[in-house]
């Protein structure tokens, strides 16, 4: 049974339609890469999943229709979002950022700081004073503290130094290996996505144009819709 089922998803920003027919399924423990060029509807799909924008179509998480739920209740079902642009709580310290969102489960302060030791070293530092990479780690840690069953990472390595990107990809690989967490990944680096993802879904102009095993992704499809 799928953890997340999306079919025929459509969404409009006022009179401008952004999503037409998005189809996507994620099973428990599966890592799925959501791919496509800029402006094709990847982040909008994530916003629809998190109920940040109203949408139509089938949107079911663990048997529950997400369309019936406000954003915070959808998150409480077990959807953890690491948003594009990090959006940490700037005035709170690293520790406070993590504790503000904590919910009971396997992931606590200790586990997050073990995954990202840099966060442990900057425990009492304000989020605003962290580097971009550290803020990204904090955003991932904050989502993990909610003990999600589905973790959504929207451009988690964008604009970061290569060494920090490596750390984040290593953490994602560790999450896949050591936890039963499903992960939905949006990123522009195909090589890393191929290494860590089980499946791929490609979106073009608000429609799912290809989905299947990542290993079976044809080079011409990738070239045509993702540009690499």
């Amino acid at each position: 049974m799928s953890l997340l089922e999306i079919s025929g998803l459509s969404l409009s920003y006022g009179s401008s339609q952004a999503l037409f027919d998005v189809n996507l399924e994620i099973a428990p423990g599966e890592v799925v890469a959501l791919m496509g060029r800029n402006g094709m509807g990847k982040t909008t799909t994530v916003k629809a999943i998190c109920r940040m924008l109203p949408s139509q179509g089938r949107l079911v998480f663990d048997g529950q229709d997400l369309h019936r739920l406000p954003s915070h209740k959808a998150a409480r079902l077990g959807i953890g979002l690491v948003p594009e642009g990090r959006r940490c709580f700037r005035d709170l310290t690293v520790r406070e950022n993590l504790l503000a969102t904590a919910r009971p489960g396997d992931w606590g302060l200790e586990e997050v700081e073990a995954l990202f030791p840099r966060l442990g070293e900057r425990d009492s530092q304000r989020a605003a004073s962290l580097s971009g990479g550290e803020q990204q780690m904090l955003a991932i840690g904050r989502a993990l503290m909610t003990n999600p069953r589905l973790l959504i990472l929207d451009e988690a390595t964008e604009g970061l130094a290569p060494i920090i990107r490596q750390e984040i990809w290593a953490a994602i690989a560790r999450l896949k290996r050591d936890t039963g967490m499903a992960i939905l990944l949006i990123d522009k680096t195909l090589r890393e996505l191929q290494q860590v993802s089980d499946k791929a879904v490609i979106i073009e102009r608000g429609k799912t144009v290809w989905s299947g095993d990542m290993a079976a992704l044809p080079a011409d499809v990738s070239e045509r819709y993702v540009g690499v």
Binding site: M52, F89, D91
Partner: peptide, 24 residues
């Protein structure tokens, strides 16, 4: 307290606290 921290977070980025399961 967790309530105080969550409230502080809701003051800073209301939309973001919703995506972590809190009702601002």
């Amino acid at each position: 307290s967790p309530f105080g921290l969550a409230l502080n977070a809701a003051r800073q980025v209301p939309a973001r606290v919703e995506t972590v399961g809190l009702d601002p």
